[in-house]
Each structure stands twice: as structure tokens, then as C-alpha cells.
Lab assay of single mutants.
Amino acid sequence: MIINNLKLIREKKKISQSELAALLEVSRQTINGIEKNKYNASLQLALKIAYYLNTPLEDIFQWQ
């Protein structure tokens, strides 16, 4: 199981879903879906999320 901390980290950094989506060149709905565990981010997208949030990938998506 993967624990998804994207919403928590994004909100801590005061970045909206729309802002993050624009940086990543995806839709806001994609970010929303990832945060609600409706969609799994591809490895490429997960790495981009970590880069733009300046946060280690394993802090955003944790295996349990």
C-alpha cells in the first residue's frame, strides 16, 4: 500500500492544485485524482512532483 502525502505537503508549501498542475503541465483534475488516490502517478510525474515541491519522493509517496 502507498501512503500519499501530496496534499499535506502541497498545502504546507502554500501551493494550490492549479499552480502545481500548471508547473507539471497536467490538469488540476489530475492532481486532485492523485491526492484522492483515484489515480496513480506515473514514475515520471511522481519525480516531477518531488522536484517542483523540493521534497524527496519517498516523503510524498511512502510504501507501507
Rank of each mutant, 00 (worst) to 15 (best):
L45I: 08
K12T: 11
I3A: 10
I15N: 00
L20I: 03
E11H: 07
P56G: 05
E25C: 15
N54C: 11
S42C: 06
E25P: 05
E35F: 03
E58R: 12
K14H: 13
P56N: 08
L43D: 04
L8W: 08
S18R: 14
L43F: 14
Q62L: 08
V26H: 02
S18P: 06
S42D: 10
L53A: 02
K48T: 04
Y52N: 04
W63S: 06
A46D: 00
Q62W: 09
M1F: 13
E25T: 08
W63R: 06
N5L: 07
L23E: 07
E35L: 04
K38W: 12
I3L: 13
A46T: 05
W63V: 07
K14S: 10
Q64A: 14
Q29I: 09
I9F: 08
A46W: 13
N4C: 09
D59S: 09
K7Y: 04
N32I: 15
Q64K: 13
L23K: 11
R28T: 15
I3K: 13
Y51I: 07
D59A: 10
K38S: 10
K36D: 13
N40H: 14
W63K: 06
Y52E: 05
I15K: 04
S16G: 06
N32R: 15
A41D: 01
N5V: 05
I31Y: 04
V26D: 00
L43V: 10
G33T: 07
N54S: 11
L45N: 01
S18I: 11
I2C: 15
I31D: 01
A22V: 10
W63N: 05
A50Q: 03
G33L: 15
S42M: 03
I9G: 01
L53C: 02
D59N: 09
I2Y: 12
N5W: 09
R10S: 02
N37D: 07
Q62G: 11
M1N: 08
K7R: 14
R10Y: 04
Y39K: 11
E11G: 05
A22W: 06
E58G: 13
I2R: 09
L45F: 08
K13I: 07
Y39R: 13
A21P: 00
R28H: 09
N54Q: 14
P56V: 05
R10Q: 02
K38A: 11
K38N: 09
L24F: 01
D59E: 14
S27G: 06
E11N: 09
K12D: 08
I3C: 14
F61E: 01
Q29P: 06
T55E: 10
L47N: 09
Y39A: 09
L57N: 03
Q29K: 14
I60L: 13
Y39T: 11
L8I: 14
Q17G: 04
I49W: 01
